[in-house]
Design a protein around this nucleic acid. Structure first.
Lengths: 331, 331
DNA sequence: CTGAAAGCGCTTACAG
DNA sequence: CTGAAAGCGCTTACAG
């Protein structure tokens, strides 16, 4: 910057004024400075600026698992939003590990970050999250709630979503329905399970304990879980899956048993990944808009920054998308 | 830091020494300082440190498409490597857009970054990449080559991979084989196509122009491409796909036509995603180890930093993984 | 409209 | 073994 100042024949104060787009600089001077910038290939040091004025354009997206395609969609939507608002989103992956989450966030705090979006790892401590929110910049949780921390969370209406899909299956005549996939220590699992149970109870349908089979949220998890359930209870006619990915695993398990998904057994998912529309049979699922999540999350970040106080949590709407993976019963 | 110094009754120079793990500090003093740090909840400002000593622990991973599952694997492997080496990996997504790539990289340069890993967007200018390598920190390209830029690239042996899988199909008795998916403006497409062509030529098999059908690298692309090819040439018995994801789209297209992948038509992929093993039928594909890519890429970053000169490119080995998606011909 | 000076939170020779 | 001073690249009142 001092070189630019010399080349333009002005002081570095003036260069700074130009860089920051200050209006009260003579047009001629602005031009000289910009010329010098171009010639010297000068690059602004935003860290130095941040050191002085405490501002930052960096927003951290702390992602629980980059291999999760739904999360990828949320991140992409978030990036779009943040860039529109002039932020630079950086993403960091914690692979569902609290230890990595702690380490990554600590490291991020050492850099000047304007805010955190975080999908908390399983077993995240409320105290830790609270300390982060108290000490540093705004934090908003995505997809998962951490009970006991006063931090806004933006997540889908998990209960409603599962309730809707389960009721749909019941309406199709299914009586024995299994719920597979998902990890019990995470809030969204509990919520989705509650939605499922409510629909079943309302219809006065019983749920055997073995009909609920948690598993990893990967495709492999869905495959294993469905096999277990079917080994125990071959008379099940429909399954609701914790996520679409779990449903894909269920498809595989069915095919390997010589069963056709959507014909022999009804399957519903949750997320509405792009792929679900392109499966064969196309997957009936609960759509939750990644754009809406991103939008509401960014609103909360802004509110926090502007009002200096913690905003409210929000539930994002869900919608049952009916495709071809659910037969009527007896058909 | 000045507060810590006061609380510990030492100078900030000493605090800095302790923070940096300097050995020549009295054990007693170290303890006092660490105590003060703990009590005050002090957090180190790494940007300020970087301003002074020009060091940085930040490494940028500039990803062309976060929704691409293979890239996600590479990123995860890269993160593992980088953290072992004491770096803080941050990822930034450019969504296959050169414009975003330019903007994101410009923004990253304003922060103090120790190096760049980048999967260049289609139509990346060699001059732009060269300028980045000349001006700033080390750059290594991943997965895709940009011709004309003196920047090390780490990518799979695309030619060999496709050659291997095509030869395998030929060995199974297939004579008319299509090649679907992939975007022509990217180097890996050209290389994989060359591998395919070489195997066909060696076997003295002709390839009609219509038997090569590029498409987006998404599932939808594979589906569309295969439908086009099959509309034109129903006598095709095998298809090689640009990637596993394209192959998944091909599965869907086949099923929708009432055909069974692996029985009516042989399908091979490229990447060996985790899902491919879990498909039904399990996908025969070309495995390229994301860990190897990450390893070789990090080595190059280190070499560049240590020797101050541009390292060589590297080709990562490939391996044909035979599963159940390829029938013999006439079967 | 522009420049000189102080200061952001660190590190690094250099004294002592 | 520890402290005082200078400086990294910026910004921001404050003069003029």
């Amino acid at each position: 910057m001092i070189d630019v100042a010399k080349a333009a024949g002005v002081s570095k104060s003036t260069v700074s004024l130009v860089l920051r787009g200050n209006t009260g600089v003579k047009a001629e001077t602005v031009e000289k400075v910009n010329l010098a910038i171009g010639e010297l290939g000068y690059v602004y040091n935003r860290d130095a600026a941040g050191l002085r004025n405490k501002e930052s354009n960096l927003v951290a997206i702390v992602a629980n698992d980059l291999a999760n395609p739904y999360l990828a969609q949320v991140i992409i939507a978030l990036e779009g939003q943040l860039e529109q608002q002039g932020f630079m989103p950086i993403v960091v992956n914690i692979n569902e590990s609290v230890a990595r989450q702690t380490a990554m966030v600590a490291s991020l705090k050492e850099h000047n970050v304007a805010g955190f979006f975080i999908t908390p790892a399983p077993k995240t401590e409320a105290a830790w999250l609270q300390a982060l929110a108290d000490a540093s910049s705004p934090v908003v949780c995505l997809m998962r709630d951490v009970e006991g921390a006063n931090v806004p969370t933006v997540m889908p209406d998990n209960r409603l979503g599962m309730y809707l899909s389960t009721r749909y299956l019941i309406g199709l005549g299914h009586r024995r329905i299994a719920f597979i996939g998902g990890v019990e220590s995470i809030s969204d699992y509990q919520e989705r399970k509650q939605g499922f149970m409510r629909a079943m109870e309302e219809a006065e349908l019983s749920v055997e304990t073995g009909d609920i089979e948690p598993s990893s949220t990967k495709r492999q998890g869905g495959k294993i879980a469905l096999n277990r359930v079917l080994d125990r209870a071959p008379d099940i006619t429909a399954i609701v899956c914790f996520t679409d990915v779990v449903a894909y695993g269920a498809y595989t398990a069915l095919r390997e048993r010589g069963l056709t998904p959507g014909k022999d057994i009804a399957v519903v998912g949750f997320d509405d990944l792009e792929d679900s529309r392109l499966m064969s049979p196309a997957l009936t699922t609960v759509r939750v808009s990644a754009e809406d999540i991103a939008l509401m999350a960014c609103e909360r970040l802004q509110q926090w920054r502007e009002n200096q106080k913690v905003p409210e949590s929000a539930l994002v709407g869900v919608e049952l998308v009916i495709r071809s993976s659910c037969c009527s019963v007896g058909k």
